[in-house]
Design a protein around this nucleic acid. Sequence first.
DNA 1: CGGTTTATTGAAGCCTCTCAATATGAGTGG
DNA 2: CCACTCATATTGAGAGGCTTCAATAAACCG
Lengths: 174, 174
Amino acid sequence: TLRNGQRQITAILVPGDMCDLEAVLCGWADCGIMTLTPCIFGEIPLEQIADPLQQGPELARALLSQLLRDQAIASERVLSLGQRTALQRLAHLFCELQERLQAVGLADEDGYDLPLLQAELADLTGMTNVHVNRTLKEMRSQNLIRWQKGRLSLLDRPALARLAEFEPAYLRVP
Amino acid sequence: TLRNGQRQITAILVPGDMCDLEAVLCGWADCGIMTLTPCIFGEIPLEQIADPLQQGPELARALLSQLLRDQAIASERVLSLGQRTALQRLAHLFCELQERLQAVGLADEDGYDLPLLQAELADLTGMTNVHVNRTLKEMRSQNLIRWQKGRLSLLDRPALARLAEFEPAYLRVP
DNA sequence: CGGTTTATTGAAGCCTCTCAATATGAGTGG
DNA sequence: CCACTCATATTGAGAGGCTTCAATAAACCG
């Protein structure tokens, strides 16, 4: 959050993701975490993760894998914020969430639950809630999405992916 | 790079940084790397790094450390691109580079060599080369910086940091 | 010194923001 | 079941930041 109250959401986590790696491994956090829905989460004791090499290769490998994926996602977000239009930014976010949620069984072929406010979408994509609203309207009018009662339907995924120049390869980290 | 030719530079490396971790560890790259100056670089053989846990704790710890720092920097860039103004984005970048270069002995108290084109600053900060030019002019007129012959002088670091809301803590990863 | 790259400046236009008003919806208490 | 209230969504009008296009100036380089 900046002094003037503007907020940027730097990441969005789906079930299965680890969070707070930086905070735990570095001993301090430069951002907070909040939940969008009721959540079930597991805690990894600090001692176990603070020196991951003591714990056998599985944990360290999982850590590395998660960090690499987070970084790929962050890079893609930088590209979005720097170069894509508002319409493309939203389309890209929707495509990314489709892939990530589908990977953990929380999306089917045509959509997923998206328990977000428009204002939160705005903070994710670096735009105003007003402009998010207008952009969503534009997406609806192009029959790209439907969003009702917290359920987002991607009506034309190929068109969305083309519009956003969404290339899912960056999500496939071993 | 997007289809229309717009380019986003997602990271900038200073001497001592590792690069291409994702490419090596995942076996593919979603972006390229280019040098700004003649460079000396070391190569770590793929076999040594592909399974970092086989190589004793030092390498793995260095890897983790670098990844965490990269991520902190990426998050900060997301914040910049999403929420800061053009002036703040440039100021923040200049402050960050001051810290990072000073940490490796390549900057003194009042500035450093910055072998970049304005167009490259534009691709870093998500703006147009034209607007970079105008924004630099504004910074000069406020006596914040001087930039001559590849040497960038930060004339008023406190003012720059205040303007950009630059908090160097995110760079201090153990 | 000529030629090419880079920087600078102007003018016009568009995307996005800001401010503000209205509408819709969800939850609550009567 | 309905009125009330608060949060969220929607829409309009105007302003501003940044972009685009284009032209000129400056710097670099063989």
